[in-house]
Design a protein around this nucleic acid. Structure first.
Length: 443
RNA sequence: CGGGGAGUAGCGCAGCCUGGUAGCGCAUCUGCUUUGGGAGCAGAGGGUCGCAAGUUCGAAUCUUGUCUCCCCGACCA
């Protein structure tokens, strides 16, 4: 992509409303624009980021055996009356009336709808287990939206729903999502710590939140330090095998959000291993049994001929929120530092002297070579001054910068800068292209 | 929802107290000079001062109402 044709409205000055780093940087780097409190437009660069996050989430859901579908954003109040949540949900739910004066709502979550879908098609234990998910925009009318996309009112969320014959089977589904989430966040360059959590309005008796530690996190968390360094299970996990040992390994040590924090249990953790910090919740898993299947009569016949409600769980990942969380965990004074896997572009090419014949030619050939390799670089071919280009490229945080100017070309050299480390090396254009093809190929 | 703050050019702000036809920096446009870390000089364009009433000869400025946004708390993925 040529920057001169792209739409990248970066801001030199910081908008006054943004208080935390990720919000500030998302506005400055031209990723989003606020349309109304807690509601954002995703500009081209932000959309590419969002798609990358979404892609990883989808790939890992599919790997774990979940099946993608898509449910609408607007739901009918009737559905929610069946579960009793229409009245229970409160003002967070955005209620709408259509032209026939029917009560509708902008979905804050989809337990009711998917339970209704399930019950109309699945009647036998033989059809279980089932795990379905969708990635859809949701709306919760937060009293006080803040922190940019991390606490918006409209947000993109992946939510999965599991249906099982009994609690033991449901726990296997729960474990499946538990493990998948660790891999998912790990692929995005995030270290997520699973912590025991409150079940909230979803209900149920078993729940974990996946927390990214960050100073600006919205909630206080307490955990054993060893959990923070524990590697993700890995993409070669056998999801049909027994996942319980892997889950046990990651739930044995103390870890809890403030809502369910048990000070006595925390004090039992050796003092040098106690970590009291703040965190951003990027995912949550729930097992809630028959909370919805029972009132909504989502029953299946068992081998004994009797009908019983299915055991359900639901599993959310805040896709748009992760965009903020990644920046919160990966930035410096100059701007964002994207992990390679989610970077909107992996490589930026900087033409230091647009209009200089030799420099233009070198940039064009670098651009074409990288495009041909499928690496899709962002080529800054604008007439801006070098300083402005450097600052902008650092701000938008592309992992690799290929810097080409007359000074280096005189000696047949270009400069390759890694955003994260700040390391630069001078090498021939061919060597630089080879290196980029190698380091960018893996993800 | 309780408490606080703010709406003046695209962005960041001053002006308001003490009413008199609106200003600064950045950005934008033109020209010249510059050209490896957000350039310099000269010039130009751009604002019904959130909206609505009221007071007044006269309102960005005073009064009332209203909308929006932000911050702290409670709540929440």
């Amino acid at each position: 992509m040529r920057l001169s044709r792209y739409f990248l409205p970066t801001l030199k000055e910081t908008p006054s409303e943004a208080k935390i780093a990720s919000h500030r940087l998302m506005l400055r780097a031209g990723l989003v624009r606020q349309e109304s409190a807690g509601i954002y437009s995703w500009l081209p660069l932000g959309l590419k980021l969002l798609k990358n996050i979404e892609r990883i989430v989808r790939e890992e859901q599919d790997r774990a055996g979940a099946v993608e579908m898509l449910m609408p954003t607007i739901q009918s109040a009737e559905l929610w009356r069946e579960s009793g949540r229409y009245d229970a949900y409160g003002k967070e739910m955005l209620r709408i009336t259509d032209r026939h004066n029917r009560e509708m709502l902008y979905g804050p979550t989809n337990e009711e709808m998917l339970t209704a879908i399930f019950r109309s098609f699945c009647k036998s234990y033989k059809e279980l287990p089932k795990m379905l998910y969708h990635i859809q925009w949701k709306f919760r009318d937060e009293v006080r939206p803040r922190f940019g996309v991390m606490r918006g009112r409209e947000f993109l969320m992946k939510d999965s729903y599991s249906f099982d014959v009994d609690e033991a089977a449901a726990r296997r589904s729960y474990n499946r999502m538990f493990i998948t989430y660790l891999n998912t966040f790990s692929r995005m360059g995030l270290q997520a710590v699973p912590m025991r959590a409150e079940t909230g309005p979803i209900g149920g008796d078993l729940s974990h939140e996946f927390i990214i530690l960050a100073e600006t996190g919205e909630s206080a968390v307490f955990c054993h330090k060893d959990l923070v360094d524990m590697p993700a299970p890995g993409l070669d996990v056998d999801f049909d095998g027994d996942l319980q040992p892997l889950v046990d390994e990651r739930t044995a040590l103390y870890a809890a959000t403030e809502d369910v924090h048990d000070e006595a249990a925390f004090m039992a953790v050796p003092e040098d291993k106690r970590l009291s910090a703040r965190g951003i919740e990027v995912g949550q898993v729930f097992y809630f049994g028959t909370k919805y299947s029972e009132p909504m009569r989502a029953n299946v016949s068992h081998p004994d001929g009797k009908e019983r409600p299915v055991h359900m769980g639901s599993y959310g990942v805040g896709v748009s929120r992760i965009a903020g969380a990644i920046i919160e965990a990966n930035h410096d004074d100059e701007g964002i530092i994207w992990p390679l896997a989610v970077a909107p572009f992996k490589i930026g090419i900087i033409n230091l002297r647009q209009g200089d014949e030799q420099t233009d030619a070198a940039c064009e050939s670098a651009w074409k070579a990288l495009e041909a390799a499928g690496l899709e670089p962002l080529y800054d071919d604008t007439a801006d001054r070098a300083g402005a280009k450097f600052s902008r490229m650092d701000l938008i945080g592309l992992p690799w910068q290929l810097i080409i100017g007359p000074r280096g070309l005189k000696d047949g050299l270009v400069e390759l800068k890694e955003r994260a480390s700040g390391e630069r090396q001078n090498l021939s254009l061919d060597a630089a292209l080879d290196l980029l093809r190698t380091v960018c190929a893996s993800s």
